[in-house]
Design a binder for these strands. Structure first.
Length: 557
RNA sequence: GGCCCGUUGGUCAAGCGGUUAAGACACCGCCCUUUCACGGCGGUAUCAGCAGUUCGAUUCUGCUACGGGUCACCA
């Protein structure tokens, strides 16, 4: 078989040579040790939590080493492409502050532009490149055209991929398919010509010469030393539409774009033999690999499963909707990435996460379960460290989109809103009431008339006359100019007057001697002023509310 | 089913041949506190199992079990 002639037959329009292509992508001029990484999502409309996890690693590794991080859009599957997906992707990355140096970006006008010298950065625009390398492989007898259609192969397999395949059928189905593919390797030049004359669709398959019984050693930077079998599968390089499969695009792109470190999910591990073979066939130097652990969830049956896009929390946009601040998700992500991040952050509170010495060795090698309780705890801590102004701005942003009515209320009186956010904030032991922006309204809505409702239930176990009398007495002596201790002394006086203990120790020593205690009196007032039993410091609440509103609410109880 | 990867408390995890096996979350007590939210102190709970190497294995090796991933003209 004249492979050179075959390659000309298959790619008559490809005139560029591999050398010419290589010349277009010179080595990058980077300092010693600089890493070149890439985030290469397919534009499916959202960024997966696991994808963000990888993007963060990409970004940190590149920028921590003085290297380059680029974004490549893997749009080789036209069927799955969703319009606006690239924009959504870019926005998510920028929301989370994951900055990349090359790839598709948005300019000032919001238009998509390409930045960088190693593009195009969309695989659909790189067809020419792939074809040159495919032609080379065919010319060298390392790849061949296969005219067997996907439908025919599926038929041969006799098993519906969608249906549940019984374990025992696996072997035979795989064998049959393999036999069919092997048969596809047998052809004459005349047959190929006939197919082409007939415009029969075909794919380009690799000619696999591996023996799966033979294992080769491979070192992954996360997983460590692995043993991988040789590849014996004639997998597809170019689909019948001329677009490459992931495998082929990965080899060609990461070679030309000079990627030094490939960060991807461990679900790619099984296809490693394919990639090793491809890089060998093409004469490319393999990049280093980091196969990251999977993020798992517990399913209905209590088994661990890969976090799928249907699960809440799988899409980065879910967090926005649930009201998690990006900073919180970031910090949670970082703690999953390097478990010592939390500790480091506690000791370096003033430093940016960019100063954190991210370490590959610290990355988990086994999958971890997604833990909302932990996320919530991290979130509370992060939010508690923010200033009242920050909280105001960020929560308003969120409310503008998800709760416009409440946003309007907040905006109507920014000073008051900020004063509320300032309660118990800034000290060594800040309040931690807020976990998500969604918590803001339930937490402080009562300050605003539209959201103020009174729950009298806690008052029911007391004599209504006492409640009424306590309120009346409070109003008699209430002076908004009072210092906190004076203010509280007055409440204690009310307690004494009504037969409630003003001294908690005395009360605890002999509870039966009193109708209640000063905490109960405070509770009456708290119900009146905040409408509920639990609230931030009552003295401050009254100050922010102002004398008029405070009196009005107590009078109305 | 084949192949690959993994397994330290309920969860995330330190550990890298000799430790009372860190810490965080969750949970449970107690304390502080006019409520709540904090904060402090304490507690329950972990090396999947079995062999082997070794003076000594959570750490090294093998096997078993269990869990996960993957087996497309999807990425």
């Amino acid at each position: 078989m004249d492979y050179k002639a075959l390659s000309e037959l298959l790619f008559p329009n490809v005139t560029a040579t591999v050398e010419e292509i290589e010349a277009r992508y010179p080595a990058r001029d980077l300092p010693e040790g600089a890493k070149v990484t890439r985030f290469a999502p397919s534009p499916t409309g959202f960024v997966h939590f696991g994808g963000m996890y990888q993007a963060v690693v990409d970004e940190r590794l590149a920028h921590q080493s003085g290297g380059v991080f680029f974004l490549r859009i893997e749009d080789t599957d036209g069927q799955r492409e969703i319009k606006g997906a690239v924009e959504a992707l870019i926005h998510t990355l920028s929301d989370y502050g994951v900055s990349y140096d090359e790839g598709i970006k948005e300019d000032e006008n919001g238009d998509l532009v390409e930045v960088g010298d190693y593009g195009p950065y969309k695989q659909s625009q790189r067809a020419e490149l792939y074809h040159v390398f495919a032609k080379k492989l065919v010319a060298e007898g390392k790849a061949y055209p296969c005219f067997t259609t996907a439908e025919e192969l599926e038929e041969i397999q006799e098993t519906d991929k969608k249906a549940e395949i019984k374990n025992t059928d696996w072997h035979t189905a795989a064998e049959q398919k393999r036999a069919a593919m092997l048969a596809g390797r047998q052809f004459t030049m005349e047959e190929v010509k006939a197919h082409l004359a007939n415009s029969d669709p075909f794919v380009i398959r690799i000619l696999a010469n591996g023996d799966p019984e033979k294992k080769t050693k491979f070192t992954d930077m996360v997983k460590g030393n692995l043993e991988v079998p040789e590849n014996d599968e004639d997998f597809v390089l170019l689909k019948s539409d001329g677009i490459p499969t992931y495998h082929f695009a990965h080899a060609v792109d990461d070679h030309l774009m000079k990627t030094t470190h490939v960060i991807r999910g461990e679900d790619w591990l099984p296809s490693l033999p394919k990639h090793i073979m491809l890089f060998n066939y093409l004469g490319f130097k393999m990049p280093k690999y980091l196969h990251t652990a999977q993020i798992l969830k517990t399913d209905e049956n209590g088994n661990k499963k890969k976090l799928s896009k249907r699960d809440m929390g799988a899409k980065m946009d879910d967090y926005r909707q649930m009201g998690y601040a990006t900073e919180c998700v970031w910090e949670y992500l970082l703690t999953l990435l390097n478990s010592n991040f939390e500790e480091w952050h506690a000791q370096n509170a003033d430093k940016s996460y960019l100063d954190f010495p991210f370490n590959i060795k610290k990355m988990a090698t086994s999958g971890c379960l997604y833990d909302y309780a932990k996320l919530n705890d991290v979130s509370k801590n992060v939010l508690s460290r923010m200033t009242a102004d920050e909280i105001y701005e960020k929560s308003l942003d969120w409310a503008n989109e998800f709760d416009p009515d409440f946003a309007a209320v907040m905006k109507a009186d920014p000073e008051k809103t900020k004063a509320i956010f300032a309660i118990g904030r800034g000290g060594k032991k800040p309040r931690k009431d807020l976990c998500t922006w969604n918590d803001v309204k339930p937490y402080m809505g009562f300050f605003f008339a539209p959201y103020f409702t009174v729950d009298r239930t806690p008052l029911e176990r007391f004599d209504p006359a006492d409640v009424k009398s306590a309120c009346a007495k409070f109003l008699e002596t209430y002076d908004p100019a009072d210092e906190m201790n004076v203010w509280f002394d007055k409440i204690k006086a009310i307690a004494d007057a009504l037969g409630y203990a003003s001294d908690m120790k005395a009360y605890k020593a002999n509870p039966d001697a009193y109708k209640g205690n000063v905490a109960d009196i405070s509770m009456f007032l708290r119900i009146a002023v905040t409408g509920r039993e639990n609230a931030p410091d009552l003295f401050t609440v009254m100050q922010i509310l102002g004398e008029e509103e405070t009196r009005k609410r107590i009078l109305a109880l």
